[in-house]
Amino acid sequence: MRKVVLATLPCLFGAVYYFGWRCLAVVAVACATALVCEYLFCRGRKEPVTEAVFVTGILFALILPPTVPWHVVIIGAAFAIVFSKEVFGGFGRNIFNPAMAGRCFIYICFPLALTASWALPAEGLWRSPSAEYKKPDAAPAYTAGRLDSSSAWGALGTWSSAPGPDALTSATPMGLIKTGKPVPPLTTLLCGNITGVMGATSALLILLGGLYLFITKTANRTIILAVILTYLALNALLTWLVGPPFVGALPPTLGAGFLFGAFFMATDPVSAPKTGLGRVLYGMLIAIFTLVIRNYSIFPAGFMFALLLANMFAPIIDYGVTELKKKRAPANPGTTA
C-alpha cells in the first residue's frame, strides 16, 4: 500500500505543477474525510485503521477536476469509504473500487461541478503548439492574471491555475474527440499541460508511477497489459475499419486518464478477479466497455463506468473460471485412464 502512495507522487506533483496548490488541499480534504469515516466504522468493529484509506483518498482526489467545490469532495470521499467499502466489511472486502464508486456517485449527483468547467493548466516548460482547445477570448486575462504562462515553475507559485472564470474552459481531450475536433498533439498529451482531472493529465508522469508499480509487481501485470493492449488494439482496428469517431490508437490511450485508470484503478487487488484467466478477461472487459461508453454514450467518463461494470462482473468471472477448472481437472485423468 505504501508503494502505491509512492507511485502516485509524480501525479500529485503534476497536479500541483499544472493547477496550483489547491490540488494538494483537495487531496488533504479527501484523505481527512476518508480517515474520519473509516475511523468511525473501525471503532465499531474494533479493528485498526489501515493505510489503505489514504490510497483511496489520494486516488479519489486525483481524478477530480482542479476546480471541484469542497462539499463535493467531502461527499464523494464519504460515499467512497462508507458505501463501497465499510458496508461490505471494511478493508480487503469491497466489491467495487471505492475511489471510482465515490467519483461515479458525485458525477451523477453533481454533474455541473464535475463536467462543466475545467481549469486551464499552466503552460510549464512545454509550450503547446496547438491552441485549439484554449478559449481564445480568455487569453488576455490569462496572461494578465497571476499566471505567467511561460514560467518554468508552472503553477507552483499559485493557489489555483484558474483564479477566475476567465481561465475556465469546457473542452477536454475526450470531449474534443467526441465532438470531432482535432485532438491535442501527442507531445502535449505526454507532458500534460491540458485540461482534465488534476492528477491524470500527463501520460509521462502516470507512466513514471505506473512503471514503478509494474516493475515492483505491486500492481498485477496481467491486468495492466490486458487493459492497455486490448484498448490499443481495438482503437487501431476501429480507426482502420470505421474511421471517425475513432482517431487512432494512441490519443485515446494517452489522454483523459485512461493510463491512470489502467495502472492505479483497475489493479486494485481486492475488487479484481483472483484467477489468471479471470484477470485477462477482466482487463479486456474494461477496455471494451471503455471504448463503447467513451465513443457512443452521452458520458465521456468511459473508464469510470467501465471499471464499475467490470467490478460487478469480477466475482462471476472468477466463479466461472474456477468451475471450468474443476470440470477440466477430473475430466483429464478420466480420458487418459
Binding site: A101, C104, I293, S297, G302, M304
Partner: peptide
C-alpha cells in the same frame, strides 16, 4: 450506477 454509463 455503473449501468448509467450506457445511457445513450
Amino acid at each position: 450506477l455503473g449501468f448509467i454509463g450506457f445511457t445513450g
